[in-house]
Design a binder for these strands. Structure first.
Lengths: 220, 220
DNA sequence: GCTGTTAATATAACGCTGTCAAGTTGACAC
DNA sequence: GTGTCAACTTGACAGCGTTATATTAACAGC
């Protein structure tokens, strides 16, 4: 009964080649540039042959996204490798790496986090939680060392993540940094991130104001 | 010499109808659902007739985006209309409205801020600066009233904007809030925003730590 | 009233897309 | 041999944005 696996190695290689081609195309020109025919041409197959390895384009894209998150997590991991555990420096490095990844892999980044991809990836299914785990561990260690205040780690992770993610997506989407003309010079994403550091650390509360919120508002 | 303007009123109405149909389709199913043929069918024209009013699909999308930002700014404006100038409450309301717009107009929001649209809108060209002006004014007033600390307004605007924008785009893209299982219940975007408030106001600095950064890091 | 111009539309087609149906080839099992 | 199945191919379909070309109707000037 044993089914005829003609050559499992070659099959795996072909699938890997397809995946690689798809990744390259997506990294170069985004999802628009990732076409079945384009991938097929790069691999030397007919377009329909891909359907033997991937159910449809969506499945292929999903795999490409997974690959991308591995690469993304690699950026993060490398960024903090040499930095002392528990340091706030490590948190900064994560943010810097996040930004660097987005800027150095613009199209790829858009594919990964693009709200247009019909890939509503649950982050839980991604390798390393799509970077969440690494982020979380770094936050927990920073809390334990006293580098940042103690609070719900998941909340803080999401807070910091949204902070850096919002910065890059906003810049990628509508370049609002042009509005920051205080000194005339153009502010890059890393520049802005550095200037936000103080807000993240000390907040927007005026110096001397009580630490507990006393704003008149009671609702919401 | 006067060119034959057959019926300028009717022409304007047709253009408006096209725009309206395009907006509806985009709001319903995102950019993918916005096709020239689809719009044409809804208006009762042939697809190519649209090219008489818009140079190409890109131009049509750009107009739809502009319309969307007007709607977006309407949300923001309405949210703070009844709140006292200079209050931090107003800043909160802006954030809440931002989130509400994103959740109530998911597909539309993706079109406006989608990094896939080949519409790298410079925010300056949008009505009301795409909401930037309103945001900025609110920040400036909050600074003047002492509700938040004094700093470069543009920096603070971008900081707050990135904060709320990052939150919603992250949630729209990969639902990381599932990771926040501290209390077991599901946290919605407005919930999360409310919980982040304290971080934004007081920062992540541990209570009692000096206001000036004294982290060991010198680099970066 | 005829002629020329032009707005406003239509039809047909091109090349692209994802996808499906059907056919081909070759390796292996019995 | 014969059958089965993996690994492909070709051909086609419907949809896309876009272009070229044609049609119709309205108006301007003579």
């Amino acid at each position: 009964m044993s089914p005829k696996v003609a050559d499992p190695v070659r099959a795996a290689e072909t699938e890997a080649a397809i995946l690689e081609a798809a990744r390259d195309l997506a990294a170069e020109g985004g999802l628009d540039a990732l076409s079945m025919r384009g991938v097929a041409a790069q691999v030397g197959l007919s377009a329909t042959a891909i359907y033997h390895y991937f159910e449809n384009k969506q499945a292929l894209v999903t795999r490409v996204v997974t690959l991308g998150f591995e690469r993304f997590v690699g950026y993060l991991r490398a960024a903090i490798a040499e930095l002392p555990r528990g340091s706030r420096e490590r948190l900064r490095a994560l943010g810097d790496a996040y930004i660097r990844f987005a800027l150095e892999n613009r199209e790829y980044f858009k594919v990964l986090f693009g709200t247009y991809s019909e890939t509503p990836q649950d982050i839980e299914e991604l390798p390393d939680g799509g970077g969440y785990d690494l982020f979380r561990q770094t936050v927990v260690e920073a809390m334990e060392s006293g580098a940042i205040r103690r609070a719900d780690p998941d909340l803080v992770v999401l807070y910091l993540w949204a902070h850096v993610h919002g910065l890059v997506t906003l810049l990628l989407a509508c370049r609002p940094e042009a509005r920051c003309r205080h000194t005339g010079e153009q502010l890059s994403a890393p520049d802005l991130f550095a200037r936000f550091r103080d807000f993240v650390y000390s907040g927007l509360r005026p110096q001397g104001a009580p630490e507990v919120e006393t704003d008149g508002a009671s609702a919401s």
